[in-house]
Design a binder for these strands. Sequence first.
DNA 1: GTAATTTCTTGAATTAGTTCAACAATAATA
DNA 2: TATTATTGTTGAACTAATTCAAGAAATTAC
Lengths: 186, 186
Amino acid sequence: MALNKFFLQFVNFNESELDQLNQLAKPEQISKGEALIKRGQVCDKLYFVTKGILRLGYTSEKGEEVVLDFVFQDSFAVDYVSFLLQQPTEMDIIAVQDCQLLSFERKSIHKLYEENIKFQKMGRLISEFYFIRFAERIKENSLPPKERYDKLVATNGELLQKIPQYLIASYLGISAEWLSKLRAKK
Amino acid sequence: MALNKFFLQFVNFNESELDQLNQLAKPEQISKGEALIKRGQVCDKLYFVTKGILRLGYTSEKGEEVVLDFVFQDSFAVDYVSFLLQQPTEMDIIAVQDCQLLSFERKSIHKLYEENIKFQKMGRLISEFYFIRFAERIKENSLPPKERYDKLVATNGELLQKIPQYLIASYLGISAEWLSKLRAKK
DNA sequence: GTAATTTCTTGAATTAGTTCAACAATAATA
DNA sequence: TATTATTGTTGAACTAATTCAAGAAATTAC
Protein backbone atom coordinates (compact mmCIF):
# COMPACT_ATOMS: atom_id res chain seq x y z
CA MET A 1 0.00 0.00 0.00
CA ALA A 2 1.39 3.32 -1.15
CA LEU A 3 0.81 5.17 2.11
CA ASN A 4 2.73 2.68 4.21
CA LYS A 5 5.47 2.60 1.64
CA PHE A 6 5.76 6.35 1.95
CA PHE A 7 6.12 6.19 5.74
CA LEU A 8 8.60 3.31 5.59
CA GLN A 9 10.89 5.45 3.45
CA PHE A 10 11.57 7.48 6.54
CA VAL A 11 11.29 5.24 9.59
CA ASN A 12 11.31 1.49 10.01
CA PHE A 13 7.84 1.17 11.57
CA ASN A 14 6.44 -2.15 12.72
CA GLU A 15 2.94 -3.33 11.87
CA SER A 16 1.20 -1.90 14.89
CA GLU A 17 2.79 1.49 14.35
CA LEU A 18 1.68 1.48 10.73
CA ASP A 19 -1.79 0.59 11.97
CA GLN A 20 -1.80 3.57 14.27
CA LEU A 21 -0.96 5.82 11.35
CA ASN A 22 -3.54 4.21 9.10
CA GLN A 23 -6.26 4.66 11.67
CA LEU A 24 -5.81 8.42 11.50
CA ALA A 25 -6.41 8.47 7.75
CA LYS A 26 -9.82 9.68 6.62
CA PRO A 27 -10.69 9.11 2.96
CA GLU A 28 -11.76 12.24 1.12
CA GLN A 29 -12.35 13.07 -2.48
CA ILE A 30 -12.49 16.17 -4.55
CA SER A 31 -13.33 16.73 -8.18
CA LYS A 32 -11.41 18.52 -10.87
CA GLY A 33 -11.30 22.29 -10.38
CA GLU A 34 -12.37 22.23 -6.74
CA ALA A 35 -10.21 23.69 -3.98
CA LEU A 36 -8.81 21.53 -1.21
CA ILE A 37 -7.53 24.59 0.64
CA LYS A 38 -8.33 28.22 -0.06
CA ARG A 39 -6.45 31.40 0.74
CA GLY A 40 -7.28 32.56 4.24
CA GLN A 41 -7.94 29.13 5.73
CA VAL A 42 -5.56 27.58 8.23
CA CYS A 43 -4.14 24.37 6.84
CA ASP A 44 -4.65 21.92 9.70
CA LYS A 45 -4.57 18.71 7.74
CA LEU A 46 -2.10 16.79 5.66
CA TYR A 47 -3.54 15.17 2.55
CA PHE A 48 -1.92 12.08 1.10
CA VAL A 49 -2.81 11.85 -2.58
CA THR A 50 -3.80 8.30 -3.47
CA LYS A 51 -5.10 9.28 -6.88
CA GLY A 52 -5.03 12.39 -9.02
CA ILE A 53 -2.95 15.56 -9.29
CA LEU A 54 -3.29 18.91 -7.52
CA ARG A 55 -1.70 22.29 -7.95
CA LEU A 56 -0.56 24.73 -5.30
CA GLY A 57 -0.55 28.42 -6.14
CA TYR A 58 -2.18 31.78 -5.72
CA THR A 59 -4.18 34.39 -7.56
CA SER A 60 -2.11 37.47 -8.40
CA GLU A 61 -3.30 41.07 -8.09
CA LYS A 62 -4.05 41.06 -11.81
CA GLY A 63 -6.28 38.07 -11.29
CA GLU A 64 -4.10 35.45 -12.96
CA GLU A 65 -3.67 32.09 -11.31
CA VAL A 66 -0.02 31.44 -10.58
CA VAL A 67 1.05 27.81 -10.15
CA LEU A 68 3.92 27.29 -7.70
CA ASP A 69 3.90 23.51 -7.42
CA PHE A 70 2.20 20.32 -8.53
CA VAL A 71 1.35 17.52 -6.13
CA PHE A 72 1.36 14.09 -7.69
CA GLN A 73 0.10 10.75 -6.54
CA ASP A 74 1.74 9.19 -3.46
CA SER A 75 2.88 12.40 -1.86
CA PHE A 76 1.40 14.96 0.52
CA ALA A 77 -0.60 18.01 -0.42
CA VAL A 78 -0.23 20.72 2.21
CA ASP A 79 0.78 24.31 2.65
CA TYR A 80 3.51 23.44 5.09
CA VAL A 81 4.04 27.03 6.18
CA SER A 82 0.42 27.42 7.22
CA PHE A 83 0.46 23.95 8.75
CA LEU A 84 3.57 24.63 10.84
CA LEU A 85 2.63 28.09 12.01
CA GLN A 86 -1.13 27.50 12.12
CA GLN A 87 -1.72 30.76 10.38
CA PRO A 88 -3.91 31.53 7.36
CA THR A 89 -2.45 30.32 4.10
CA GLU A 90 -1.81 32.62 1.15
CA MET A 91 -2.21 29.68 -1.18
CA ASP A 92 -4.90 27.71 -2.92
CA ILE A 93 -4.60 23.99 -3.47
CA ILE A 94 -6.77 22.97 -6.39
CA ALA A 95 -7.47 19.61 -8.02
CA VAL A 96 -6.13 19.37 -11.56
CA GLN A 97 -8.09 16.13 -11.95
CA ASP A 98 -10.52 14.23 -9.75
CA CYS A 99 -8.55 13.22 -6.66
CA GLN A 100 -8.74 10.67 -3.91
CA LEU A 101 -7.08 11.66 -0.69
CA LEU A 102 -6.36 10.49 2.83
CA SER A 103 -6.48 13.32 5.32
CA PHE A 104 -4.55 13.43 8.58
CA GLU A 105 -5.48 15.94 11.25
CA ARG A 106 -2.66 17.95 12.71
CA LYS A 107 -3.85 17.32 16.25
CA SER A 108 -3.89 13.56 15.94
CA ILE A 109 -0.47 13.55 14.33
CA HIS A 110 0.89 15.60 17.20
CA LYS A 111 -0.62 13.14 19.62
CA LEU A 112 1.40 10.38 17.98
CA TYR A 113 4.54 12.50 18.21
CA GLU A 114 4.18 12.53 21.96
CA GLU A 115 3.42 8.85 22.30
CA ASN A 116 6.37 7.46 20.39
CA ILE A 117 9.63 9.06 19.41
CA LYS A 118 9.63 7.15 16.11
CA PHE A 119 6.67 9.24 14.96
CA GLN A 120 8.49 12.37 16.03
CA LYS A 121 11.44 11.29 13.94
CA MET A 122 9.15 10.68 10.98
CA GLY A 123 7.78 14.19 11.33
CA ARG A 124 11.24 15.66 11.34
CA LEU A 125 12.38 13.61 8.35
CA ILE A 126 9.31 14.51 6.32
CA SER A 127 9.93 18.18 7.07
CA GLU A 128 13.50 17.78 5.93
CA PHE A 129 12.33 15.97 2.82
CA TYR A 130 10.18 18.93 1.82
CA PHE A 131 12.88 21.35 2.87
CA ILE A 132 15.29 19.72 0.46
CA ARG A 133 12.71 19.79 -2.32
CA PHE A 134 12.26 23.52 -1.78
CA ALA A 135 16.00 24.10 -1.90
CA GLU A 136 16.16 22.20 -5.18
CA ARG A 137 13.26 24.24 -6.50
CA ILE A 138 15.04 27.50 -5.75
CA LYS A 139 18.07 26.28 -7.65
CA GLU A 140 15.98 25.05 -10.57
CA ASN A 141 14.18 28.37 -10.78
CA SER A 142 17.49 29.98 -11.67
CA LEU A 143 17.64 28.03 -14.94
CA PRO A 144 16.10 29.30 -18.19
CA PRO A 145 12.50 28.17 -18.87
CA LYS A 146 13.37 25.75 -21.66
CA GLU A 147 15.83 23.88 -19.44
CA ARG A 148 13.36 23.82 -16.59
CA TYR A 149 10.75 22.38 -18.92
CA ASP A 150 13.07 19.68 -20.21
CA LYS A 151 14.00 18.70 -16.67
CA LEU A 152 10.37 18.56 -15.68
CA VAL A 153 9.56 16.30 -18.62
CA ALA A 154 12.57 14.11 -17.85
CA THR A 155 11.53 13.51 -14.24
CA ASN A 156 7.72 13.59 -14.47
CA GLY A 157 7.14 12.60 -18.06
CA GLU A 158 3.91 10.62 -18.03
CA LEU A 159 2.28 12.45 -15.17
CA LEU A 160 2.90 15.75 -16.89
CA GLN A 161 0.77 14.73 -19.86
CA LYS A 162 -2.26 14.84 -17.63
CA ILE A 163 -1.76 18.50 -16.80
CA PRO A 164 -2.98 21.22 -19.19
CA GLN A 165 -0.06 23.06 -20.70
CA TYR A 166 -1.23 26.46 -19.61
CA LEU A 167 -0.78 25.33 -16.01
CA ILE A 168 2.69 23.99 -16.76
CA ALA A 169 3.50 27.30 -18.45
CA SER A 170 2.41 29.16 -15.33
CA TYR A 171 4.60 26.88 -13.21
CA LEU A 172 7.54 27.72 -15.47
CA GLY A 173 6.76 31.42 -15.30
CA ILE A 174 6.07 31.84 -19.01
CA SER A 175 2.95 32.33 -21.13
CA ALA A 176 1.08 29.32 -22.50
CA GLU A 177 1.71 30.56 -26.04
CA TRP A 178 5.44 30.74 -25.53
CA LEU A 179 5.58 27.23 -24.08
CA SER A 180 3.72 26.04 -27.14
CA LYS A 181 6.31 27.71 -29.37
CA LEU A 182 9.21 26.31 -27.36
CA ARG A 183 7.80 22.83 -27.71
CA ALA A 184 7.39 23.28 -31.46
CA LYS A 185 11.03 24.31 -31.89
CA LYS A 186 12.82 21.01 -31.46
CA MET B 1 24.91 39.94 22.25
CA ALA B 2 23.50 39.16 18.85
CA LEU B 3 24.07 35.41 18.95
CA ASN B 4 22.16 34.92 22.19
CA LYS B 5 19.42 37.17 20.91
CA PHE B 6 19.12 34.93 17.88
CA PHE B 7 18.75 31.79 20.01
CA LEU B 8 16.30 33.43 22.41
CA GLN B 9 13.99 34.14 19.45
CA PHE B 10 13.31 30.42 19.35
CA VAL B 11 13.61 29.02 22.86
CA ASN B 12 13.63 30.62 26.26
CA PHE B 13 17.10 29.45 27.34
CA ASN B 14 18.50 30.20 30.77
CA GLU B 15 22.00 31.56 31.31
CA SER B 16 23.74 28.23 31.69
CA GLU B 17 22.13 26.91 28.52
CA LEU B 18 23.25 29.99 26.62
CA ASP B 19 26.72 29.41 28.02
CA GLN B 20 26.71 25.89 26.67
CA LEU B 21 25.87 27.21 23.25
CA ASN B 22 28.45 29.95 23.41
CA GLN B 23 31.18 27.54 24.36
CA LEU B 24 30.71 25.72 21.08
CA ALA B 25 31.30 28.86 19.06
CA LYS B 26 34.70 29.19 17.43
CA PRO B 27 35.58 32.60 15.99
CA GLU B 28 36.62 32.54 12.36
CA GLN B 29 37.19 35.16 9.74
CA ILE B 30 37.33 35.31 6.02
CA SER B 31 38.15 38.08 3.63
CA LYS B 32 36.22 39.42 0.69
CA GLY B 33 36.08 37.05 -2.24
CA GLU B 34 37.16 33.98 -0.30
CA ALA B 35 35.01 30.87 -0.06
CA LEU B 36 33.64 29.64 3.24
CA ILE B 37 32.35 26.47 1.60
CA LYS B 38 33.11 25.16 -1.87
CA ARG B 39 31.21 22.82 -4.13
CA GLY B 40 32.06 19.23 -3.30
CA GLN B 41 32.72 19.76 0.41
CA VAL B 42 30.37 18.46 3.05
CA CYS B 43 28.96 21.32 5.05
CA ASP B 44 29.51 20.16 8.63
CA LYS B 45 29.43 23.52 10.34
CA LEU B 46 26.95 26.29 10.90
CA TYR B 47 28.39 29.79 10.65
CA PHE B 48 26.80 32.65 12.54
CA VAL B 49 27.68 35.91 10.80
CA THR B 50 28.67 38.53 13.37
CA LYS B 51 29.95 40.92 10.71
CA GLY B 52 29.84 41.11 6.94
CA ILE B 53 27.78 39.65 4.13
CA LEU B 54 28.09 36.40 2.20
CA ARG B 55 26.48 35.01 -0.89
CA LEU B 56 25.35 31.47 -1.58
CA GLY B 57 25.32 30.25 -5.16
CA TYR B 58 26.93 28.13 -7.81
CA THR B 59 28.91 28.34 -11.03
CA SER B 60 26.82 27.43 -14.07
CA GLU B 61 27.97 25.30 -16.97
CA LYS B 62 28.71 28.46 -18.93
CA GLY B 63 30.95 29.59 -16.10
CA GLU B 64 28.78 32.38 -14.75
CA GLU B 65 28.37 32.75 -11.01
CA VAL B 66 24.73 32.47 -10.04
CA VAL B 67 23.68 33.99 -6.71
CA LEU B 68 20.84 32.17 -4.97
CA ASP B 69 20.89 33.91 -1.60
CA PHE B 70 22.59 36.52 0.52
CA VAL B 71 23.46 35.94 4.15
CA PHE B 72 23.48 39.08 6.24
CA GLN B 73 24.75 39.85 9.68
CA ASP B 74 23.14 38.05 12.63
CA SER B 75 21.99 35.00 10.74
CA PHE B 76 23.45 31.64 9.80
CA ALA B 77 25.44 30.83 6.69
CA VAL B 78 25.06 27.18 5.76
CA ASP B 79 24.01 24.92 2.94
CA TYR B 80 21.30 23.29 4.97
CA VAL B 81 20.77 20.48 2.49
CA SER B 82 24.39 19.39 2.68
CA PHE B 83 24.37 19.91 6.44
CA LEU B 84 21.26 17.78 6.96
CA LEU B 85 22.20 14.96 4.63
CA GLN B 86 25.95 15.19 5.18
CA GLN B 87 26.53 14.94 1.50
CA PRO B 88 28.70 17.12 -0.77
CA THR B 89 27.25 20.53 -1.43
CA GLU B 90 26.58 21.83 -4.92
CA MET B 91 26.97 25.37 -3.67
CA ASP B 92 29.68 27.86 -2.90
CA ILE B 93 29.38 30.28 -0.02
CA ILE B 94 31.56 33.30 -0.69
CA ALA B 95 32.29 36.44 1.31
CA VAL B 96 30.92 39.59 -0.32
CA GLN B 97 32.89 41.62 2.21
CA ASP B 98 35.34 40.74 4.96
CA CYS B 99 33.40 38.66 7.47
CA GLN B 100 33.59 37.65 11.07
CA LEU B 101 31.93 34.39 11.93
CA LEU B 102 31.24 32.01 14.76
CA SER B 103 31.36 28.41 13.65
CA PHE B 104 29.43 25.57 15.29
CA GLU B 105 30.36 21.99 14.55
CA ARG B 106 27.53 19.70 13.61
CA LYS B 107 28.73 17.00 15.99
CA SER B 108 28.78 19.24 19.03
CA ILE B 109 25.35 20.62 18.21
CA HIS B 110 23.99 17.09 17.96
CA LYS B 111 25.52 16.32 21.32
CA LEU B 112 23.52 19.16 22.83
CA TYR B 113 20.37 17.85 21.14
CA GLU B 114 20.73 14.64 23.09
CA GLU B 115 21.51 16.29 26.40
CA ASN B 116 18.57 18.63 26.61
CA ILE B 117 15.30 18.64 24.76
CA LYS B 118 15.30 22.44 24.64
CA PHE B 119 18.23 22.35 22.25
CA GLN B 120 16.41 19.79 20.15
CA LYS B 121 13.47 22.13 20.00
CA MET B 122 15.73 24.96 18.95
CA GLY B 123 17.09 22.83 16.14
CA ARG B 124 13.63 22.06 14.90
CA LEU B 125 12.49 25.67 15.08
CA ILE B 126 15.55 26.94 13.25
CA SER B 127 14.91 24.37 10.51
CA GLU B 128 11.33 25.54 10.28
CA PHE B 129 12.49 29.14 10.18
CA TYR B 130 14.64 28.44 7.13
CA PHE B 131 11.96 26.27 5.62
CA ILE B 132 9.53 29.17 5.76
CA ARG B 133 12.11 31.50 4.24
CA PHE B 134 12.54 29.08 1.35
CA ALA B 135 8.79 28.89 0.79
CA GLU B 136 8.61 32.67 0.70
CA ARG B 137 11.50 32.75 -1.72
CA ILE B 138 9.74 30.39 -4.11
CA LYS B 139 6.70 32.63 -4.07
CA GLU B 140 8.76 35.79 -4.56
CA ASN B 141 10.56 34.21 -7.49
CA SER B 142 7.24 34.15 -9.32
CA LEU B 143 7.07 37.95 -9.37
CA PRO B 144 8.60 40.07 -12.17
CA PRO B 145 12.22 41.23 -11.57
CA LYS B 146 11.34 44.88 -10.94
CA GLU B 147 8.90 43.97 -8.17
CA ARG B 148 11.39 41.55 -6.65
CA TYR B 149 14.00 44.29 -6.65
CA ASP B 150 11.69 46.81 -5.01
CA LYS B 151 10.78 44.30 -2.31
CA LEU B 152 14.41 43.53 -1.69
CA VAL B 153 15.22 47.21 -1.31
CA ALA B 154 12.23 47.71 0.97
CA THR B 155 13.29 44.96 3.39
CA ASN B 156 17.09 45.11 3.18
CA GLY B 157 17.67 48.69 2.11
CA GLU B 158 20.91 49.71 3.80
CA LEU B 159 22.55 46.30 3.72
CA LEU B 160 21.90 46.06 0.00
CA GLN B 161 24.01 49.11 -0.69
CA LYS B 162 27.06 47.17 0.37
CA ILE B 163 26.54 44.52 -2.31
CA PRO B 164 27.74 45.11 -5.88
CA GLN B 165 24.80 45.44 -8.20
CA TYR B 166 25.92 42.73 -10.55
CA LEU B 167 25.51 40.26 -7.69
CA ILE B 168 22.06 41.61 -6.91
CA ALA B 169 21.22 41.31 -10.60
CA SER B 170 22.30 37.68 -10.56
CA TYR B 171 20.14 37.07 -7.50
CA LEU B 172 17.19 38.55 -9.37
CA GLY B 173 17.94 36.46 -12.43
CA ILE B 174 18.62 39.39 -14.75
CA SER B 175 21.72 40.95 -16.29
CA ALA B 176 23.63 43.69 -14.47
CA GLU B 177 22.96 46.08 -17.36
CA TRP B 178 19.24 45.53 -17.22
CA LEU B 179 19.12 46.14 -13.48
CA SER B 180 20.97 49.38 -14.07
CA LYS B 181 18.39 50.40 -16.66
CA LEU B 182 15.49 49.42 -14.42
CA ARG B 183 16.91 51.53 -11.63
CA ALA B 184 17.34 54.49 -13.97
CA LYS B 185 13.72 54.33 -15.09
CA LYS B 186 11.98 55.75 -12.05
C1' DG C 1 47.11 61.65 -4.48
C1' DT C 2 47.59 59.14 -8.58
C1' DA C 3 47.28 54.80 -10.87
C1' DA C 4 45.02 50.59 -11.34
C1' DT C 5 41.10 47.86 -10.68
C1' DT C 6 36.47 47.10 -9.99
C1' DT C 7 31.85 48.47 -10.57
C1' DC C 8 28.12 51.07 -12.93
C1' DT C 9 25.84 53.27 -16.87
C1' DT C 10 24.45 54.02 -21.63
C1' DG C 11 23.40 52.91 -26.44
C1' DA C 12 22.76 49.95 -30.49
C1' DA C 13 21.71 45.51 -32.29
C1' DT C 14 19.61 41.15 -31.26
C1' DT C 15 16.95 37.55 -28.92
C1' DA C 16 13.39 36.02 -25.71
C1' DG C 17 9.00 36.47 -24.33
C1' DT C 18 4.14 38.78 -24.24
C1' DT C 19 -0.38 39.98 -25.88
C1' DC C 20 -4.11 39.52 -28.74
C1' DA C 21 -6.76 37.37 -32.10
C1' DA C 22 -8.08 33.68 -34.90
C1' DC C 23 -8.35 29.06 -35.69
C1' DA C 24 -7.35 23.87 -34.93
C1' DA C 25 -7.46 19.94 -32.01
C1' DT C 26 -9.10 17.49 -28.10
C1' DA C 27 -12.09 16.21 -24.58
C1' DA C 28 -16.60 16.37 -22.29
C1' DT C 29 -21.72 16.25 -22.77
C1' DA C 30 -26.14 15.60 -24.58
C1' DT D 1 -22.66 11.59 -33.27
C1' DA D 2 -23.08 16.07 -33.25
C1' DT D 3 -22.40 20.01 -30.00
C1' DT D 4 -20.15 22.64 -26.80
C1' DA D 5 -16.46 23.80 -23.95
C1' DT D 6 -11.68 23.44 -23.00
C1' DT D 7 -7.07 23.30 -24.46
C1' DG D 8 -3.33 23.98 -27.87
C1' DT D 9 -1.08 26.30 -31.97
C1' DT D 10 0.26 29.99 -35.04
C1' DG D 11 1.30 34.70 -36.67
C1' DA D 12 1.87 39.68 -36.22
C1' DA D 13 2.96 43.56 -33.47
C1' DC D 14 4.97 44.79 -29.36
C1' DT D 15 7.74 44.88 -24.89
C1' DA D 16 11.26 42.96 -21.88
C1' DA D 17 15.70 41.52 -21.50
C1' DT D 18 20.39 40.20 -23.39
C1' DT D 19 24.90 40.92 -25.40
C1' DC D 20 28.62 43.57 -26.57
C1' DA D 21 31.30 47.60 -26.51
C1' DA D 22 32.71 51.90 -24.73
C1' DG D 23 33.16 55.15 -21.36
C1' DA D 24 32.15 57.13 -16.49
C1' DA D 25 32.28 56.66 -11.56
C1' DA D 26 33.77 54.71 -7.53
C1' DT D 27 37.13 51.87 -4.77
C1' DT D 28 41.44 50.01 -3.67
C1' DA D 29 46.30 49.85 -3.77
C1' DC D 30 50.59 51.89 -3.86
